[in-house]
């Protein structure tokens, strides 16, 4: 698996897109720092961008890489290699190179701005950790979609729909249920609802860490009670890990049964 990972990783590192992605984050980091003139504020703005953009890039890159490397995959399948290691290697190659672009692209300007001397360092690291988690999650979901769809156009369509659903539609539905059932106690429901969507989970996690939960009213207080504690933090990270592990397991399961 490590050899496949190595080849996929270097293949991506040589491609133009990793550089574009890296350069984009570099630019974003520099511009935000320049405009905000303050580390913590830049982190908040950055969160809003990352929470939507990272899943989108992860999904599109994952689907694109899978379909583009079909030939490479077929070549590997005839070699004495385990199927699960071929696909896991490719998946990790994509996810790790994307995470690296994110971490380096944002990390470099922040470090130069004096990140290590400020107290925003924990918020910033949390941002990068959740960003990497989102990359791992959405690349895995994209691989799942691509494995189940021979047709490229369909695969791309489903991938975009999935992103749209989790990034936008889910929140709308969530809000509507909250309004519909406003006569009932909703703290538990909204907690569970947040847990079930990795994008919402990451957003809440960062918001509460940034200590602006006072803006969120009563529900915010309940959330703070839960996510603010170390118990809540651990549960949230476990949920993020589950979100990575489940799609990865399905990649292994699906790839074992597929005909090429």
């Amino acid at each position: 698996m490590l050899k496949i990972l190595k080849y996929s990783f270097f293949d991506l590192m040589r491609s133009r897109w990793s550089y574009v992605y890296f350069a984009f984050y570099l630019l974003l980091g520099v511009v935000l720092l320049f405009l905000n003139n303050d580390l913590s504020k830049a982190v908040i703005t950055l969160m809003n961008v990352i929470i939507v953009l990272v899943p989108l890039i992860g999904t599109i890159f994952g689907v694109m890489y899978y379909y583009n490397s079909k030939e490479f995959t077929e070549l590997l399948l005839a070699q004495p290699l385990k199927r699960s290691s071929i696909f896991l290697g490719q998946y990790l190659g994509v996810a790790l190179s994307l995470s690296m672009s994110l971490i380096l692209g944002l990390g470099i300007p922040f470090v130069f701005y004096g990140l290590f001397k400020s107290n925003a360092i924990w918020d910033f690291s949390l941002l990068l950790i959740t960003g990497s988690f989102l990359t791992l999650i959405f690349t895995a979901l994209a691989f799942n979609i691509a494995l189940s769809n021979e047709n490229k156009i369909k695969g791309f369509g489903y991938a975009i729909l999935l992103w749209l659903f989790l990034a936008v539609i889910y929140d709308g539905l969530f809000l509507m249920t909250l309004i519909l059932f406003e006569d009932y106690p909703l703290d538990k429901l909204s907690l569970i609802g947040t847990m079930l969507n990795p994008i919402d989970l990451s957003r809440t996690l960062i918001l509460l860490k940034l200590d602006i939960s006072a803006l969120l009213g009563y529900t915010g207080a309940i959330f703070k009670q839960f996510f603010g504690t170390s118990f809540g933090l651990i549960v949230s990270f476990i949920m993020l890990i589950v979100w990575v592990v489940l799609p990865v397991l399905r990649i292994m399961f699906k790839s074992k049964r597929k005909d090429f």
């Binding site: 293949d11 040589r14 491609s15 490397s69 079909k70 030939e71 490479f72 077929e74 070549l75 005839a78 070699q79 004495p80 290699l81 385990k82 199927r83």
Partner: peptide, 20 residues
């Protein structure tokens, strides 16, 4: 048992290689 493929050399029908 993927190891049996060490015993096989396979020439695929259409030579599809990573083009880059």
């Amino acid at each position: 048992n993927p190891n049996y493929r060490h015993q096989i050399d396979y020439l695929p029908q259409i030579a599809n290689f990573p083009s880059n």
